[in-house]
Design a protein around this nucleic acid. Structure first.
Length: 478
RNA sequence: GCCCCUAUUGUCUAGUGGUUAGGACGCAGCCCUUUCAAGGCUAAAACCAGGGUUCGAAUCCCUGUAGGGGCACCA
């Protein structure tokens, strides 16, 4: 049985890397018909941001990632919040103490090797307390010094493990520190809580960032000390920016929720992020979450870090928008329409912008001309491709105006037929007729929809008025 | 400083000894077209460097270079 978990610490918001880790963990479980678990790692009392647990719930919900077990979904392996599991860690720490795989350390924080002072890093740290006699320990305890529990790393030898992404990793034990397992405040460190919980929650595959690659042997030593079976490992490469630097909230890089606020569809973001470091092995690029759960393969995850490209996300977002049904799109678009445009047929506007929209937040700019004609230059009536000149435009506007004024039925079809007939009769290119009309109606070089679609949408009165305005402008330029 | 990892077009990537090095985004051009999108077609664009191994290396090995990560009573 596959059991994976997403184990964020509630320190802020759901950034892109977090989203992908959660997504991959979810996909690996779901592909195998397994269980996906949410566990909150809040063992650092200084860094906890209470509201960010909500951000995690919200982010997962937004992405469509549903966990099978979690703080509010007991699957018999709870509690799923580490701060509620303190007695458990204590029990297991005592086992290690008893077996000699851990020891009590009474050093104050300032007794540590002077890393800060010298700027030199010390690896393979061996604390003097590891050799304290039973009697010495008793004495320290009697002095009421609060100890920490440290892991006893073997002095020699090396540890290897297999990672699904990076292959076999080998680290010399001498490179590993005698890590603190239990802090003096009674809270476990990540190193310890993670191992204990992963075992107790029967996690089969550990999916996490690549920063744990070289500390994983320490965790494996812990598994061995307990006589537990090690999980399989999937370490993920980092997501970076196109300039090679890392994503950071402080530098203004958006979180998952920020991106949604910027007009990107959650499904598109999920799709994009899935492709950052993984590919299906064929040319498919458009995936919904359900599709990913079918085809995802952890052995196809890449080793090197991937740069986040807004260009590609934008394209993918357009693809996802176009995948939406007319109704679904309209429902989403609704809240982006500015007040000024709400008297117009919004359903019809949605139909026009749907195939041309790249992100939802572009809607206001795209439609605002419908409410109010922007100021534009006569030069806009000149267009080489449609063979439009100031003269031709003036003629077209002047001659089609009465035609449209007397049109019996005002619809896209009748408008189009009328103008097409006019073009044929005059021996003009259709574009030469449509260009000045579209221009006069919008005052823009490009619009969602052509001349007759806009005329239909704006209605007879507004159309004739704008056409008039255009004609006046052209006559003034004569 | 020590250790670990990575390296194919601007970006995401395919590729596991023999390919005209494939696809996608972006970029440029053309077609389609009632403007713009979408769609179709075309173009430019890459194997970090140097040594090996081999009849033959993007692919295997070594060295270098560059980038990233780890070495906390943070996760």
């Amino acid at each position: 049985m596959f059991r994976t978990r997403f184990a964020p610490s509630p320190t802020g918001y759901m950034h892109i890397g977090n989203l992908r880790t959660a997504l991959y963990a979810y996909l690996i479980a779901k592909k195998a018909g397994g269980i996906f678990i949410l566990r909150i790692e809040d063992t650092d009392q200084n860094r906890n941001v209470p509201s960010s647990v909500q951000a995690i719930y919200h982010g997962l919900a937004l992405a469509g990632i549903v966990y099978d077990e979690g703080p509010d979904k007991d699957g018999g392996h709870g509690p799923y919040i580490q701060s509620q599991r303190l007695p458990i860690y204590k029990t297991y720490a005592e086992k290690l103490l008893a077996s000699g795989d851990a020891y009590l350390c009474f050093c104050g924080k300032s007794d540590k090797p002077a890393q800060e002072q010298t700027g030199e890093r010390v690896q393979g740290y061996r604390d003097p307390c590891r050799n304290l006699s039973g009697k010495e320990v008793e004495e320290k305890l009697a002095e009421r010094i609060l100890p920490v529990v440290r892991q006893r790393i073997p002095d020699s030898g090396s540890s290897s493990y297999f990672d699904h992404v990076y292959g076999t990793i080998t680290i010399e034990n001498s490179q590993l520190d005698d890590q603190v397992l239990l802090k003096s405040d009674g809270y476990p460190t990540y190193n310890f809580a993670n191992v204990v919980d992963d075992h107790l929650m029967e996690i089969s595959h550990v999916i996490r960032g690549q920063e744990y690659l070289s500390s994983t042997p320490k965790y494996n030593l812990l598994y061995q000390a307990f006589g537990w079976q090690q999980p399989e490992y999937i370490h993920l490469p980092h997501i970076i920016k196109e300039d090679g630097s890392k994503l950071s909230k402080r530098k203004g890089d958006p979180s998952f929720e920020d991106l949604v606020g910027m007009g990107y569809l959650p499904s598109a973001i999920v799709n994009y992020v899935a492709l950052l470091g993984w590919n299906p092995g064929d040319d498919r690029e458009i995936f919904m979450l359900e599709d990913l759960a079918q085809v995802f393969d952890m052995d196809r995850i890449n080793k090197s870090s991937a740069a986040f490209s807004f260009d590609k996300l934008l394209w993918l977002n357009g693809e996802h928008i176009r995948l939406l049904s007319e109704e679904a799109f309209h429902a989403l678009a609704l809240k982006y329409y500015p007040e000024s445009v709400r008297h117009i047929d919004l359903t019809r506007i949605s139909q026009l912008i749907h195939p041309r929209l790249e992100k939802l937040t572009d809607i206001p700019v795209m439609v605002s001309f419908m409410a109010e004609l922007p100021a534009y230059d006569v030069a806009l009536f000149e267009n080489q491709k449609s063979r439009s000149t100031l003269d031709s435009s003036r003629k077209v506007l002047k001659e089609t105006l009465p035609l449209l004024e007397s049109l019996a039925e005002w619809s896209n079809e009748t408008l189009f037929e009328t103008l097409k007939a006019y073009a044929q009769e005059q021996g003009l290119k259709l574009g030469t007729v449509m260009w000045p009309i579209r221009t006069a109606l919008s005052g823009l070089p490009s619009t969602p929809g052509g001349a007759t679609e806009l005329a239909d949408l704006l209605g007879r009165q507004k159309t004739l008025l704008r056409l008039h305005t255009g004609l006046v402008k052209l006559q003034a330029a004569e």
